[in-house]
């Protein structure tokens, strides 16, 4: 049994989620190989070779894969993937984009967002915004799945010494092209791997007020997230949305400020170790999941909290 993990990377650097997907692959058991596909992705491949438990790294480095266009990635992964028992990618927006295409090309199902490996063919995954957990068994010869990275510990980034093999397999469907990107630049930790996340909701009233949360985040080394309402209202960009249909986070500490706690929001953060809620409405549903609730006006409590953090 050989398992193919498709690496998550950006501008040549391997993303942390890859380590969690490797752990999921190890839990299935068997040889774990990593495919790094992109343009100028050699350094990501070198990093992948050092992950503990990886037996081989394949690199497909070509302009056709430069912008991670799903049409091209899927052709490559479906072609290479035929020889494997499992194909895994993290459930980030790249994996969610190209992997179902791979599954369809291979005429198999995709199991989305697995949170645990029960056996080589059964997996747990949340459904209905996390209000139910399904155990799903697959009878397909190749199991294709996306992995919720927060549900698996990271494999050790160092310790392995896998061989790196170049793959000369260029697939260009020629039906889509990259036009432009607006990528948010931030020195803060990525939401999905941050150990502390501070999120704001509609109660923040505007984007300017998010500076109060940023000040706290700076002191705690935290990532900053938001509810859908805050994104829809234009306070902050879409990549900050936490929830069922945004990012799934599971930090050690999640601080929800001016967020009511709708089920779609809870779906994205209820796996956090400790939850703090600051809300002026003592009946807000967020308090039902909060370890520490503070009923207060955020415009008083947040500056006070910043000061208290020294």
């Amino acid at each position: 049994m050989s398992i193919l993990v498709i690496a998550d990377h950006e501008n040549g650097s391997l993303k942390a989620a890859t380590l969690n997907v490797v752990s999921a692959a190890k839990a299935i058991g068997g040889d774990v190989e990593v495919l790094v596909v992109g343009e100028n992705c050699g350094s990501a491949a070198e990093a992948a070779a050092k992950i503990e438990g990886v037996s081989k790294v394949l690199v497909a480095d070509n302009a056709a894969y430069g912008h991670q266009l799903a049409e091209n990635l899927a052709l490559l992964v479906a072609d290479l993937g035929k020889g494997y028992s499992h194909i895994l990618a993290s459930a980030g927006t790249t994996g969610k984009d190209f992997l179902p295409r791979v599954a369809a090309l291979l005429d198999v199902a995709q199991i989305s967002d697995i949170i645990s490996v029960e056996s080589a063919d059964s997996f747990k995954r949340p459904i209905y915004a996390g209000n139910a957990i399904a155990t799903v068994q697959s009878s397909d010869s190749i199991k294709v799945m996306t992995v919720r990275s927060t549900a698996f510990d990271a494999a050790a980034a160092e310790g392995g010494s896998a061989a790196v093999e170049s793959i000369d397999n260029v697939q260009d469907a020629g039906i889509s092209a990259f036009v432009s990107a607006e990528i948010a630049k931030s020195d803060r930790p990525e939401l999905t791997s941050a150990s502390i996340v501070v999120s704001g909701g509609r109660g923040m009233q505007n984007g300017e007020n998010f500076k109060m949360l940023e000040a706290i985040a700076d002191k705690l080394g935290a990532g900053v997230g938001a509810s859908r309402a805050a994104v829809d209202a234009g306070f902050v960009p879409n990549d900050m949305q936490v929830g069922q249909t945004g990012k799934i986070v599971a930090p050690n500490l999640y601080i929800a400020v001016g967020i009511s706690g709708a089920i779609q929001h809870l779906a994205g953060m209820s796996g956090s170790k400790v939850i703090v809620a600051i809300n002026k409405d003592e009946d807000a549903p967020i308090f039902q999941v909060a370890d520490y609730g503070l009923v207060a006006d955020l415009f008083e409590a947040v500056p006070e909290l910043e000061k208290a953090l020294g």
Binding site: V108, A109, I111, S122, P126, I127, G130, N131, A132, I133, A134, T135, V136, Q137, S138, S139, D140, S270, I275, V276, E282, F287, Q288, V289, A290, D291, Y292, G293, L294, V295, A296, A301, E304, L305, A308, L309
Partner: peptide, 28 residues
């Protein structure tokens, strides 16, 4: 031709509501 079988559907682990703190000092 469904190839996935649902073996079981369970409730997620429920979180217990914690406590309310009186002020920021107690929270910290």
């Amino acid at each position: 031709k469904p190839s996935l079988t649902t073996l079981k559907v369970e409730e997620p682990a429920t979180r217990q509501a914690g406590i309310k703190v009186a002020d920021v000092a107690e929270l910290v």
